[in-house]
């Protein structure tokens, strides 16, 4: 079993990846890039799963990673559909235009 230290490093990397993704969602205004940062966050979780799986030497980690990746893809598919509609409606993909619903 890989001793705890290496697992910690893996999780720190996953954590950094996760925060970068989150920052990406916060900073970027273009919907496509927001979707990309969402993917980054999901894959960070996937990486964490793999690290956890290897820590315990069980295949669940990697199976979970596969599930994460597939479901991430489903999410992004619908996301891109919505981006298309957004572009057709506002002919730009800037999400800051979407601020009619407030109060």
């Amino acid at each position: 079993m890989i001793d705890a230290v290496i697992i910690d490093h893996a999780f720190i990397l996953a954590g950094i990846l996760f925060c970068l993704g989150l920052a990406g969602v916060l900073v970027r205004r273009n919907l496509v890039f927001v979707l990309i940062s969402l993917e980054v966050m999901l894959n960070a979780a996937g990486l964490a799963f793999i690290a956890a799986g290897s820590a315990w030497g069980q295949p669940e980690g990697q199976i979970m990673f596969l599930a994460v990746v597939t479901l991430g893809a489903a999410e992004v598919a619908v996301g891109l559909g919505l981006t298309l509609l957004l572009f057709r409606r506002f002919n730009s993909v800037d999400i800051d235009q979407l601020n009619q619903l407030k109060g």
Binding site: L26, V27, R29, I95, D96, N99, K102, G103
Partner: peptide, 17 residues
Amino acid sequence: FSRGQNGQLRFYVATMA
């Protein structure tokens, strides 16, 4: 409080974070 609900998506994600 309703000032906080300003319709900005990125502001929502920020509060969530």
